[in-house]
Amino acid sequence: MATEPYFVIPAKPGSSTVTITFEGRKIVVPAGISVAAALLAGGVGVFRTSIVSAAPRAPFCMMGVCFECLVEIDGISGRQSCMVPVTDGMAIRRQEGSSALDVSEGAKDDV
């Protein structure tokens, strides 16, 4: 569900790229940038939905303060996408509402 991107990153000839996915959709982005920058330039309009009214939200501060850019990265929810650099193959999902606490893995370990 891509929208018209809010930002563009002009291509630099010869610069390296990585491929990430958002909700399964492949996005090729420059290496070394933050996940939030990559998604904003990759046509992602909604990063998460709010925990009370399920309203759409997107990054606001880009410097780790506002927590509006929270997404799930490689299975871990509540990650600040503005603070995490992209890596090749990173799988990102929208964070719907409050982050879910999945105890099944840990519970198995304890048994």
């Binding site: 809010y6 930002f7 563009v8 990153i9 002009p10 630099k12 420059p30 940038i33 933050s34 920058a37 990559a38 904003l40 330039a41 309009g45 909604v46 990063f47 709010s50 309203a55 759409p56 939200r57 997107a58 990054p59 606001f60 501060c61 880009m62 410097m63 509006e68 503005c82």
Partner: peptide, 22 residues
């Protein structure tokens, strides 16, 4: 709080960090 609204400082972070422009 709407998508499409962010801080000017945030947009400058995008410019410095990723070379991203509107």
């Amino acid at each position: 709080t709407l998508p499409g609204v962010m801080g000017a400082g945030a947009a400058q972070v995008l410019l410095k960090g990723a070379g991203a422009v509107p």
